[in-house]
């Protein structure tokens, strides 16, 4: 037996983190800032950005819309994943929302004021009904069916020429006013973000997490997990169908592209880059990726290559995602400690 000294890294909470966590009276302005600054920056940025129409220009405001839409899809993805359902086709939810809103407005001339809430609610019910049969399975089956469904619906619409066929439905009424539109979207994003975070840590949300960790134990506690998973799908579909309906009126057009794989890949990449399981991770990922993607637009499909490589890189190299990484750096410091290692020969 011999002992030798070696070094290893140790992580400890920063003093300021400990102070602001455990003591409920904040001792100084600095502590207060430490706690609220990250949240305040985000909310302030969201409040100010829509007002900057003249500074950043219409083009970038549109990018902002797309970013927020991807955030909604990413939040939806993350809630599904919290219940152990790994979606490979967020485009399905998006497309269903889009088409319902588009059809109601194209066929019956409803105003966006009515089409968007209807599409959100009815769309989510339809999504839950469509997916109900596979919810009794575990493993990759949910992923496979969500991957195939949007592609199938797109081909079906093209082949049967219903709902506008390949031409789609155009000249839909817009949501008036860019600023108001952006505030509406941001309100929904924040509502979903905080709502989902609250939901998943509530006793009701614990059941979802339980299904993800060990579905048998949840059944053994007397829960009908197929029914709970259906509820998870319904709740997760809400922001996604809303996003679809919103975009239908934003572009004043609904067509087969609503089921395009972009709407599946983009949120997935955002969540993987930002980190799954936190909800904020997906939002962070989208905020980084979407503007980047716009900058790369002129490179054509190289953009998609870079995208997929990022997805690959993060999925293998930093599976926890950026958010958890940044959060750790913000609240903990690393230092080297010596430790005595005992070796048995």
């Amino acid at each position: 037996m011999r002992t030798n000294l070696s070094h290893r890294k140790e992580r400890i909470d920063r003093g300021i983190k400990v102070r602001s966590d455990d003591i409920f009276v904040l001792a100084s302005m600095r502590d207060l800032l430490y706690v609220i600054l990250p949240k305040a920056i985000v909310i302030l940025a969201m409040l100010i950005l829509p007002l900057l129409k003249d500074v950043v220009g219409m083009y970038w405001l549109n990018v902002l819309v797309t970013t927020l839409v991807v955030i909604l899809l990413a939040l939806s993805w993350d809630l599904l994943a919290s219940a152990g359902l790994v979606s490979l086709g967020q485009a399905f939810f998006f497309g269903v929302g889009s088409y319902i809103a588009g059809y109601l407005s194209f066929k019956f001339g409803w105003s966006p004021l009515f089409t968007i809430p209807t599409a959100t609610l009815v769309g989510s019910i339809i999504c839950a009904l469509f997916l109900y049969p596979v919810l009794r399975l575990r493993g990759i089956y949910f992923g496979l069916i969500t991957f195939a469904l949007p592609l199938l619906l797109a081909r079906l619409i093209e082949a049967t020429k219903v709902l506008g066929g390949t031409e789609g439905m155009s000249a839909l009424p817009p949501i008036p006013g860019m600023t108001g539109k952006l505030y509406l979207l941001m309100f929904v994003v924040l509502l979903t973000l905080f709502g989902f975070r609250r939901l998943i840590s509530s006793n009701y949300g614990l059941v979802f997490q339980g299904i993800r960790d060990n579905d048998r134990a949840v059944i053994a506690a007397g829960y009908n997990i197929q029914w709970y998973k259906t509820q998870a799908v319904f709740i997760a579909a809400l922001p996604a169908t809303f996003a679809g309906a919103f975009v239908a009126h934003h572009f004043q057009f609904v067509g087969v592209p609503a089921f395009a794989m972009d709407y599946s890949i983009l949120p997935l990449t955002a969540v993987v880059v930002g980190g799954a399981g936190t909800f904020i991770g997906g939002a962070l990922g989208a905020v980084i990726l979407m503007p980047l993607s716009e900058i790369l637009r002129e490179f054509g499909s190289l953009r998609v290559v870079i995208y997929s490589l990022l997805l690959l890189l993060f999925s293998i190299g930093l599976p926890e995602g950026l958010f958890k990484y940044v959060k750790r750096k913000y609240s903990q410091i690393e230092r080297l400690t010596t430790m005595e290692e005992v070796k048995h020969d």
């Binding site: 790994v86 493993g139 992923g143 190289l302 290559v305 997929s308 690959l312 293998i316």
Partner: peptide, 29 residues
């Protein structure tokens, strides 16, 4: 690509999916 994420179904799927799209779109580009 797969060995570091072996056993985590989600990561296996995402990794192969991403690799596939990267290859296909590379040829297109």
């Amino acid at each position: 690509i797969l060995m570091p994420v072996r056993g985590i179904v989600l990561s296996e799927v995402i990794s192969t999916f991403a690799l596939g799209v990267a290859l296909i779109e590379f040829f297109r580009w």
